[in-house]
Nucleic acid binder design. Structure first.
Lengths: 345, 345
DNA sequence: CTGAAAGCGCTTACAG
DNA sequence: CTGAAAGCGCTTACAG
């Protein structure tokens, strides 16, 4: 009765019979494989359309050993995760390429690194996904050899510091840090500090190195650096420590926006005026950055673009067996109100 | 050679042969179905363990017409989504119940409501999921009859305002609003405004109604209300509008934390001191709330707990055909620094 | 360019 | 309590 219900009952056998061909040929036509004449293919597709045939994903999965899904495993303390808007935007970007292809995204949020590996193994054992996204690259990341051994295709967000069989989608975030330091130096700052991310994470390391290099280039020494784990609370603590020194910095370059926003909060709490007494820059340009006061001068990231590029690359790898690395346009500094010339003193 | 590789090749037929029983019996043992003697079941499971048999999810899916996965479709402008930490924590909570059961979560982030419906349809047609989570309930929500007609089990986050065949997991968030108003009234505020969420969304409506009711109870009239779409930018705009009036409120109750944080930013920008000239309360207790200055007095939400409860309920519905509604402990006000007694004037 | 058949690895009535 | 067989709906060599 209900056409929607009926159509779900239509199988490849019905289409084959109606079109007067074998099931195999219908399959070939469906999968755009050579060996079907143009007119036969057209007729088959036409019949399929008329009958409202939707090939069974489950049957296709079983016989073709594919899952038509991609996976993303995020290993983070959920509390910290929540404040990082990167992932949802990234996933929205991924979605824009998966949806039209009829592919799905399987997401796992796990609390720690060992659960993370177990999750990848389950994903492979169950044949849940045809490939995965690898984010938050760490130094000498165990996930890379692990996935390689499991035979699971992957794309890394950022270029690993080790031999990797996987394509990468990366962005030059050092440029943003460099621009931040130059901007502050041009405003007249001499004592500039860096609240760095985790040294165990590649982007934390890279931004820190970029900071030091830019400081030297500007003739400002190495600059003081405080390491954190990228979390808001660690950012707040680091800021407090920096400002309580005898010679506090007049500017701080933060490795991400959440920490920078916490930094503004701490400064205000201590009665240190931003940007008059202290200039602050962030990294990521999360939406909050525009709405805190003063609005955060920060480096623009493009998580949706990353998502799209990573999904395209991973699909290419899965389908053709290889894919080129992609380098996205370098991150740029966005100047707003949280950085200004230091007041004389 | 590689045991991991070998084990993936082991099938139910191998186990049956080795255990000296039929494939059917192995299947029965695997699925804990009656009709297998305790010792036979034990022997089968033992053999399965020895051989390292992992039942093929794909084969099980095809023959049992289940997908062993749950779905979550989020319809939101990705920009706005990013600043809402609710989802990632919610998903982390869901994960804690899915992972031990060997179930996966399929996530879709779509830009608008029509894409949302199409996504649900695809999920059903492809047999991707056995049930879905329904969040951000709207007035007379079309998704409820739609999913019902598709025959897809669901759990709603919050109680719908319409007839619904689905169980709900809800929390009394009106209590948090009520506590906020009482807190402000007790501090001596008389002109309290509410920056409400979208009137099209149930929780926006509910919080707004709770605000008005609490104001009346306190003998403070209806209180001024400005409607928004829950977005940070709308929260900033609403605050600006409120503060520019001849008789601006001395306190504002925001329907969520992102808007409240933007509200603090706007106040600072306008030279209005928080909490001296203006008290502010939020809703959700996102991580940022503790780190802005002054720290945000807000209502605690528990997205991880929601996730866990919703997943448990949905699984129960799928497995037994019915599930009871769950009411989580009422949301409570968390007092921090953004609300204080109004300065006399 | 096309057909007939086996196979993917389970589950599920149906007999006994 | 147990076995043999059909079935889920595709894909994929293998023949022609």
């Amino acid at each position: 009765m209900d056409p929607a219900q009926d159509s779900s009952k239509v199988t490849i056998a019905d289409v084959a019979r109606e079109a007067g061909v074998s099931k195999g040929l219908v399959s070939f036509a469906l999968n755009d494989r050579p060996g079907v004449s143009a007119e036969t293919r057209a007729r088959i597709l036409q019949v399929a359309g008329t009958l409202g045939w939707t090939p069974s994903l489950r049957a296709r999965s079983l016989s073709s050993k594919r899952s038509f899904a991609l996976g993303f495993v995020i290993a983070r303390d959920p509390e910290v995760l929540g404040s990082d808007p990167f992932f949802t935007s990234f996933i929205a970007g991924v979605e824009t390429v998966l949806a039209p292809e009829g592919l799905a995204l399987v997401l796992s949020v796990v609390p720690d690194a060992s659960t993370e590996l177990a999750t990848y193994r389950t994903l492979v054992t169950d044949g849940r996904v045809d490939g995965v996204f690898l984010s938050d690259l760490r130094q000498d990341d165990v996930r890379i050899p692990y996935l390689s051994e499991l035979g699971l295709p992957a794309v890394t967000l950022g270029r690993p510091d080790q031999l990797s069989p996987f394509p990468s989608v990366s962005i030059d975030d050092t440029n943003g840090i460099r621009e931040s330091v130059r901007h502050l130096a041009a405003l007249g700052h001499r004592r500039i500090a860096h609240v760095a991310g985790s040294p165990a994470m590649l982007h934390g390391n890279r931004r820190r190195a970029a900071f030091t290099a830019a400081m030297r280039d500007a003739g400002l020494g190495d600059g003081q650096v405080v390491e954190t784990d990228f979390s808001i609370s660690a950012g707040a603590d680091a800021t407090r420590r920096l400002l309580r020194q005898d010679q506090p910095p007049t500017a701080i370059v933060f490795a991400n926006d959440p920490m920078a926003i916490a930094g503004i909060g701490v400064a205000q709490e201590l009665g240190v005026s931003v940007p008059d007494d202290l200039s602050i820059t962030g990294f990521d340009d999360i939406e909050f950055a525009r709405y805190v006061y003063p609005a955060l001068t920060t480096v623009g990231a493009t998580p949706m673009v990353w998502g799209r590029a990573a999904a395209t690359t991973l699909l290419g790898l899965i389908r053709t067996g290889s894919a080129d690395d992609i380098e996205l346009p370098a991150a740029r500094l966005i100047i707003r109100g949280s950085a200004a010339a230091p007041t004389s003193h």
